[in-house]
Computed example of a mutant assay.
Amino acid sequence: MIQTAITPFKQKLASPLTKKEITVLQINLGKRCNLACSHCHVEAGPKRTEELSPETCQQLIEIIQRFPQIQIVDLTGGAPEMNYGFKPLVEAARATGKQVIVRSNLTIFFEDGFADLPEYFAKHKVRVVASLPCYLSDNVDKMRGAGVYDGSIKALQWLNQLGYGKEPDLIVDLVYNPQLPKDEKFSLTPNQTKLERDYKQYLQENFDITFNNLFTITNLPVGRTKLSLERKKLYTPYLQFLESHFNAGTVEHLMCLDEISIDYLGNVYDCDFNQMMNVPAKTRDGENLTVAKLLETGSLDLINQVQTAAYCYGCTAGTGSSCGGALV
């Protein structure tokens, strides 16, 4: 008998996902981007205009300054660097001793008005997490657009010249995403440790590039990935594939447990995927959360349980997946 239903994710769990103390503040600054990648769960691109408002930016700076429990401020987009508030948020976080992560597409360095970014990153010791979905050019350009691979290579060489990948406080990590499925021959991400060795060897031998870590991230059926799967009638089969590889050992390491994700309007979510699917975080009383509410109550720890959905199988399949790569 062929299974057609997807088991609700929460039924797979021994107990509900309970929020821990919030230590990671992930902010999606908006949907403006110089690229329009085929797998983008944010559906960002050059024609998108949604971005942080000055008011929300100021509230976020206040949160960064008021809550010492935040250890990491993780800036994403779109291309976060193109959206309002990027540099003020970097500087507020660094001034309070927090680590700043920027999720960069690297090619932004070569757009008009952004050539100062590599030096700016180095000056503020920003940790760069850069998308390079393969170490071979064909696969990258198919997913991200013609010429993106060459631009990414030049950008990594530029960062290396500034000490990234070499000096202990200048960290550059790369992110691997699988190709989007074309048929029902689905696969999980490869072994992260082995793939990192392959990336390092290839990039060193061919381009004299060094980097710190490789993160393997599963394509979650959200945003453009979901649309692509639906067009090919693969959405339900892909979810079934992810469910069939559910690994209970990943659950205690999920990124949603100790982070909150903020959108450009100041709404609060448990993770970036819930944000894109408009599944807001809830207080114990079932109320939706905003940045204004966090400031008003003086607490980041108002969420009891993480909101879940079928796409959560993407984070818990195989070795697991998070913004920091494999979980186990």
Score class of each variant (00 low, 15 high):
residue 95 A to R: 12
residue 15 S to L: 06
residue 146 A to Y: 05
residue 51 E to V: 05
residue 231 R to H: 14
residue 32 R to M: 14
residue 99 Q to Y: 05
residue 85 G to I: 00
residue 69 Q to D: 13
residue 194 K to W: 10
residue 267 N to Q: 13
residue 16 P to E: 01
residue 233 K to N: 15
residue 190 P to W: 13
residue 191 N to S: 15
residue 139 N to W: 15
residue 175 V to G: 14
residue 81 E to G: 07
residue 263 D to N: 15
residue 97 G to S: 07
residue 316 T to A: 15
residue 198 D to F: 12
residue 43 E to L: 07
residue 73 V to N: 05
residue 162 L to V: 07
residue 100 V to P: 00
residue 242 L to P: 08
residue 284 R to G: 09
residue 305 Q to I: 00
residue 9 F to R: 06
residue 129 V to P: 05
residue 240 Q to H: 14
residue 316 T to R: 02
residue 264 Y to H: 14
residue 187 S to P: 03
residue 270 D to P: 02
residue 154 K to I: 04
residue 128 V to M: 01
residue 297 T to L: 13
residue 275 Q to S: 07
residue 242 L to C: 05
residue 220 L to V: 06
residue 74 D to S: 14
residue 141 D to R: 01
residue 310 A to N: 14
residue 45 G to P: 14
residue 49 T to P: 00
residue 71 Q to D: 04
residue 265 L to V: 05
residue 267 N to D: 11
residue 260 I to R: 02
residue 212 N to Y: 12
residue 107 T to E: 03
residue 187 S to R: 11
residue 163 G to D: 08
residue 106 L to N: 00
residue 29 L to R: 09
residue 56 T to F: 03
residue 197 R to N: 15
residue 136 L to A: 08
residue 255 M to F: 13
residue 192 Q to P: 08
residue 310 A to Q: 08
residue 25 L to W: 13
residue 246 F to Q: 03
residue 59 Q to R: 11
residue 82 M to F: 14
residue 239 L to H: 02
residue 70 I to F: 03
residue 177 N to V: 14
residue 220 L to P: 05
residue 309 A to F: 06
residue 124 H to I: 08
residue 20 K to T: 13
residue 307 Q to G: 10
residue 172 V to F: 05
residue 67 F to Q: 05
residue 302 L to T: 12
